[in-house]
Every structure is written in C-alpha cells, then in structure tokens.
Design a protein around this nucleic acid. Structure first.
Length: 322
DNA sequence: AATAAGTCCAACCGCGTATGA
DNA sequence: GTCATACGCGGTTGGACTTAT
C-alpha cells in the first residue's frame, strides 16, 4: 500500500540534534513519559518527526545508557550473542543493559566483524600450518563453532517451552520474547530516571554545555546510572564504576523498561523512593530453569569483568547445559 | 601543511508487526 | 477481514574526525 514516510513533511528538521532540542525533548518526556511519539513533535514544538524523537531518546537521551569503550566482557557477550541470535540487535541489547541496539550494531560492524575476520583468518592459517596447540582465542573460536549449533537448538526449544507454559496468559512484548526471563517491567523504574534527568538538567542548565561534564559525572557516581544528556564528554568507564553485580543484574529489567516497553503506564504512581535498581522483580526461577541457567551463564561473569577466559568457561558451562 | 584514505557513529530510511477502527 | 496508522527493528548512509602519506 505504501505508507508515506513520516519525515517527508516540509519543515521537518533532519540531522544532528542540538542541545536545546535535547532539553526540550527530555523535559517533555520527563513530564509525560516516553511513548505516544506521534504527539511529541506537536506538543514540544520540535521540528522533528516522531521517529526521530523516539530514536534520539532511546539511543541517546534515555538514562542508563553507557557510551564509549566496550569492555572485554561486553565484547565477548556480543560475539556470543550474535552467534546465537544473529543480527537481532535489540535482542542482544536486552542482554547488555547499558548499551543501545544501535551502539552494539555499530560496534559489531566497525570493530567485531573485523576482529573476528582477522581471528578466522589467523585460525585458518594455523589450521594449515600446524596441528595440536593454538592460543586461547583459537580454542575459543573452535569451541564456539561446535557449540553454537547445539546452543541454538536448545535455546529454541527452551523458548518454545517458555512460550507454551509461561506466556500463555500474559502476552509478552516483542522485545521480551527473546529474553523471557526478564519479567514484565514495573513502570516505576522510570520515575527515578526522570528525576535524574531533571536533576541533571538543572545542573546542566546552570552550567555551560562544556561544564556539563562535571555535573553528569556527579550524577553518575551518586545515582549509579546516568549519562550526559547532550553526550558531551561522557567517559566510557564511568557508568559502570558504581555498579555492583547486584545492581547490574537488576538493570536488566530496567533496560526492558526504558528501551523496550516504552508504553508507560501513565496511571502508575511515580514515587521518588522507587530507585532505578530497587523495584525489580525476580524471575520465577523454578519454572524457567534452562533459561535461568543460560542467564547465569551469560551474566555470572559480569561481576568479574576483565577476567581472562571468561567465555571459555561460559562455553564450557553451556556445553554442559545443553 | 595539505590532503587523501580510513574509521566511527548518530541519524535516517524502509520494512515488518501490532493495534484499532 | 481489510485498511490505516503508529511503533520498533535492522540496514545503510553522511559527515565529522583521525590517521597515513
């Protein structure tokens, strides 16, 4: 039928967002919550299409986003998840709570693809030139290849089991289907985010955009999750510095709240007491055994970032699992 | 110092899906 | 069931930035 592009309208601005536009958008979302993007340009006066507003929010302004350097652990998780899930970046992003799908996609395309290619070439050479021993990366590569098929199959089975048993009565959101152990979110998680935004904005408005670095840093360290709303000078390692393994775990449902289930229940009462990390529901572990184990496999190492051979171990566990 | 080539990433585009009339 | 609309996702692109020559 051919729907006309939403951005075809005359007078719709394109290109990079200005700090002023960011503030306008954040202020609006602060007040109304994300969702109903159609009315956002009209209500805010932004000369942007709704799509652009949503994208700007989810990929950049949304609280809890970490930017910049990917850790070794994140890198390995992406490689692993990409092998399991394919180019389903949103699904992969749901396992990396502080990263956006766009970010992961970019990182994959610009870094990891090349890296793997290199590794594969390396491995190929080695297979021709030697037998027996290889470095840990090579081992990992081989084990990955042999395990992927089994893992994929098991994951499919697990997912179908989950769907038939657990999700019969409550239809999961599209994004949650690939991460079924993440329970439907509570909208109150957003409350703290908006508070953070408002606090950050207060600081940011007081200072020049340049000096917003310090205010965002302060926010990050004191509130455990935050980004500079205009993306100026946010250091990559800051976001995680204050995260404990526990909070990291709880972040997963935040992620699904903020980035995926954007349809915020507007009737929900937002209370200042509900912090970002404190109101998460734990999944029912007894009924989700295979995926809980998978979750463990994926995230157990989150606490000990930077450990060598982390994926070796994980793969070993996976092989046992399946 | 100039500029060509390469890299990176924010934003755009088009398509599929969900939803409601 | 059909159609229109909104949303979300993945692929792609444009241009700013960096590196090499």
């Amino acid at each position: 039928m051919g729907r006309p592009p939403c951005c075809d309208k005359i007078g719709v601005k394109k290109g990079p967002w200005t700090p002023e536009e960011d503030i306008t958008l954040v202020s609006y979302i602060q007040e109304h919550g994300p969702g109903n993007w159609r009315v956002v340009p009209t209500n805010t006066g932004l000369l942007r299409c709704s799509k652009s507003c949503r994208l700007r929010w989810t990929n950049y302004l949304r609280p809890g986003i970490r930017r910049g350097n990917f850790t070794d652990h994140e890198e390995k998780m992406i490689i692993h998840l990409q092998a399991l899930l394919g180019n389903r970046w949103a699904a992969i992003a749901s396992y990396l709570p502080q990263r956006t799908d766009n970010d992961i996609k970019n990182y994959w395309n610009t870094h990891l693809k090349k890296k793997l290619k290199k590794l594969q070439g390396h491995e190929h050479d080695k297979q021709h030139n030697q037998d027996g021993h290889s470095d840990s990366k090579g081992q990992w590569e081989r084990r990955l290849q042999t395990d992927i098929h089994m893992a994929k199959q098991a994951l499919r089975e697990a997912l179908s089991l989950e769907k038939s048993s657990n999700f019969a009565e409550s239809k999961p959101s599209k994004s949650n289907t690939h991460c079924p152990f993440i329970t439907p979110i509570q909208t109150t998680t957003y409350a703290s985010s908006t508070e953070n935004i408002s606090r950050l904005l207060e600081n940011w408005m007081k200072n020049s955009p340049k000096s917003s670095l310090t205010s965002s840093e302060t926010s990050q360290t004191t509130q455990n999750s935050f980004i500079n709303p205009v993306g100026i000078g946010s250091s990559p390692s800051e976001g995680l510095s204050a995260l404990t393994p526990g909070s990291l775990e709880s972040l997963f449902s935040f992620n699904s709240a903020a980035s995926k289930s954007v349809s915020v229940d507007k009737t929900a009462t937002f209370t200042p007491e509900t912090t970002l990390f404190h109101d998460e529901r734990k999944p029912n572990s007894s009924s989700q055994m295979p995926l809980a184990l998978l979750e463990k496999w994926l995230f157990d190492d989150g606490a000990s970032q930077g450990q060598e051979d982390v994926m070796d171990m994980s793969l070993g566990e996976t092989a046992v699992l399946f």
